[in-house]
């Protein structure tokens, strides 16, 4: 009788410990799951480098405004501006923007920019074909550089989007 109970308890404990493990793994799995969810829904505005060459037909009937926003993280001694705040373009067209970045500090700086697109649900339609944001950049003391970004907006972008915001934030990653 007693050993019977012990067996039952052991079984319960084993099952529950398994549940604990599953939930812990679930928490870890939330990271990739969230990334997938973000890719679908655009929650955090992250865009990715497109590997393939995109061949859209340019929709000349439609014009959208693309806004280029720049930010820097706290303690990042860079001056960082898009050469133009915004421009109008047709969906499907390759949109180029040059950014001017200056290292205002007197140290050599490693820095990386992260993109963010808003509104979120439109993120999937903004294709980043060229961006300095996917690699760490090195800025010599006082160096000024002009860096280029190319994006293409998928013509399938739902009609009610008239304005897209492409944001870049530079962070000093010097160790």
């Amino acid at each position: 009788m007693a050993s019977d109970l012990e067996q039952k308890n052991k079984k319960t404990v084993r099952a529950l410990l398994l549940l604990v493990l599953v939930m812990f793994l679930f928490a870890v799995a939330l990271i990739p799951l969230y990334d997938i969810l973000c890719e679908i829904t655009g929650i955090n505005g992250k865009t990715r480098q497109e590997s393939s060459i995109l061949n859209y037909t340019i929709d000349t009937q439609r014009e959208i405004t693309i806004e280029f926003i720049t930010s820097i993280g706290a303690g990042t001694g860079l001056e960082f501006k898009a050469d133009k705040y915004q421009l109008k373009a047709h969906p499907g067209e390759v949109i180029k923007m040059t950014y001017t970045v200056r290292n205002k500090t007197n140290k050599r700086m490693f820095a990386k920019a992260n993109p963010s697109v808003t509104p979120g649900p439109a993120v999937g339609y903004v294709k980043n074909t060229k961006c300095f944001c996917f690699a760490t950049q090195v800025f010599e003391v006082g160096e000024t550089r002009h860096l280029e970004v190319q994006i293409v907006v998928d013509p399938a972008l739902p009609a009610h989007y008239k304005r897209l915001t492409f944001g870049l934030t530079f962070y000093d990653t010097t160790k």
């Binding site: 200056r102 205002k104 007197n106 300095f132 690699a135 950049q137 010599e140 003391v141 006082g142 160096e143 000024t144 550089r145 002009h146 860096l147 280029e148």
Partner: peptide, 14 residues
Amino acid sequence: LQAAIPAVEYDDDD
């Protein structure tokens, strides 16, 4: 101090 350091222009080498 901010501007004295000569600004070196680089092309986009990326």
